[in-house]
Design a protein around this nucleic acid. Structure first.
Length: 419
RNA sequence: GGAGAGAUGGCUGAGCGGUUGAAAGCACUAGUCUUGAAAACUAGCAAAGGGGCAACUCUUUCCUGGGUUCGAAUCCCAGUCUCUCCGCCA
């Protein structure tokens, strides 16, 4: 959320930044609302002062006047709160501003590659897709999921289920032991306020699964990513700078409607309503955001290095970035069957954008209270990593070699073959 | 599901109709002392918003929303959340 103060003080800069995002914002309307809002506040405060003075004097002859003032105040109050609400609703649906080094462009075609790494495997045969491999092994079952649940779900069975768990555990171990992240096992549902805090609400409500509770309780949503719940751990708090940075990692299921992607990736488990993801979240002083983003991205790519999976790192263009991000790196892993790279991680700095929505602050060493910086990144998407392992480690007979680093997690199994 | 208790500043915790933005303690910051540190002492220390070039000043805020009153952290109503005990249950 952008603060109206910043917009008021520097409308041109703001307008320019908004253009980079290729969205329409009626800046004039915002400024007009702000002006009216402040005018009403002034009028209201003058009356409030008057009223306060009367009650301090305790002069009975003025009591009647004070009553009249109260009525006037409540009129101004009503008027002002309407304007304030409108102003806030506009402000809350404006995305974060892209940083200077973010390539400008309206969609993913303007994303820029930073580097490629790893050896693309050569096959003496035509490499199969992960779902052909998984179904061949009888360890991925999409039809069964359709029967029990519906489309975009999958049963992972037997050794592949174990492999999926091995991947998540390997990632968690790496991030906790080597990268300084604290492991969290969080709730998988979040309140509407938390969803607002990280930016899923109000604009992207259609992508979220809402859970029906008893009528008296507040709205709750299945988390689309652990980012929501981990980031909101500092919501409405004032953190001591000595406790920063906070680095959190969680392996959780994620739930997404994928509303806007009908017909996209309908085959296989690339795009599911439910998938496991190991998520990294960092809470830092705002001036540390960019350094932390590099660090976090390195933590993510290290997993791929260890798994010996080929990947490339790209920086997203201004138009392709998520709502809350000011700068985003995507990591894309090589999928032989598609003969291209596919997203497996996305690491973003959100600057103070989410913190302002969450009212998450910290005291710096001058004892001043400021908004925190927040970052999030996948480290990595477990389901897609499973896909990448299947496809990159496949043999001609449809069996899957186990990456060396995962063997301790797989009882030293070398290979997954059909039973 | 039944019966109670509570929600106050970064934290703990007083206040229960009138300079209370709010005692006290802890934490934090600065200073004195010390070779340094600790301890002790002294001082400072809430947030949001408005006005002003600024010094500064005004308003709001004691869970949320209503109400009573000239005046509410304090009284009344509704709601949310938390805790304790009993029951039920993974």
């Amino acid at each position: 959320m952008h603060s109206i103060k910043d917009i008021r003080q520097n409308p041109d800069l703001f307008l320019e930044n908004i253009k980079k995002r290729f969205i329409n914002i009626d800046l004039k309307k915002i400024l007009k609302l702000d002006e009216n809002n402040r005018k009403l506040i002034q009028q209201k405060e003058t009356l409030e002062k008057e009223k306060k003075d009367i009650s301090k004097k305790k002069d009975k002859s003025l009591f009647e006047k004070s009553k009249q003032i109260s009525e006037k105040i409540s009129k101004f109050n009503d008027e002002q709160s309407i304007i304030k609400k409108e102003l806030e609703s506009i402000l809350s649906s404006i995305p974060n501003i892209a940083l200077k080094d973010v390539p400008i462009g309206k969609d993913e075609s303007f994303n820029k590659e930073i580097f490629k790494k790893g050896e693309i495997p050569e096959f003496s045969f035509k490499p199969k897709s992960h779902y052909e491999l998984g179904e061949g092994l009888k360890m991925l079952d999409f039809d069964l999921a359709t029967k029990t649940t519906g489309s975009r779900f999958v049963f992972v069975k037997d050794k592949l289920a174990q492999l999926e768990r091995a991947l998540a555990n390997f990632m968690l171990d790496t991030h906790t032991k080597n990268n300084g992240y604290k492991e969290i096992s969080p709730p998988l549902m979040a309140s509407d306020a938390s969803m607002f805090g990280t930016g899923q609400l109000p604009k992207f409500e259609n992508d979220q699964f809402e859970i029906k509770f008893d009528e008296s309780s507040g709205r709750k949503f299945l988390i689309p990513t652990a980012e929501v719940i981990l980031t909101n751990m500092v919501k409405e708090q004032i953190i001591n700078h000595k406790d920063l940075p906070m680095r959190l990692v969680a392996s959780t299921p994620c739930f997404r409607k994928e509303a806007g992607s009908y017909g996209k990736d309908t085959k296989g488990m690339i795009r599911q309503h439910q998938f496991y993801k190991v998520e990294l979240v960092s809470i830092v002083e705002p001036n540390q955001c960019l350094d932390e983003l590099e660090r976090m991205t390195n933590c993510a790519t290290k997993i791929l290095d260890d798994l010996k999976l080929p990947y490339k790192k790209i920086i997203l263009s201004s138009g392709d970035m998520g709502f809350s991000a000011e700068k985003t790196y995507d990591i894309e892993v090589w999928l032989p069957s598609e003969n291209k790279y596919r997203e497996i991680s996305s690491c973003s700095s959100c600057g103070t954008f989410q913190a302002k929505r969450m009212k998450a602050r910290y005291k710096n060493n001058n004892n001043e209270t400021n908004f925190l910086g927040t970052l999030n990144g996948s480290g990595l998407a477990v389901g897609r990593t499973l896909i990448a392992v299947l496809e990159n480690y496949q043999d001609k007979d449809g069996s899957i070699k186990i990456p060396n680093i995962l063997k301790p997690y797989m009882n030293n199994l070398d290979k997954i073959t059909r039973n």
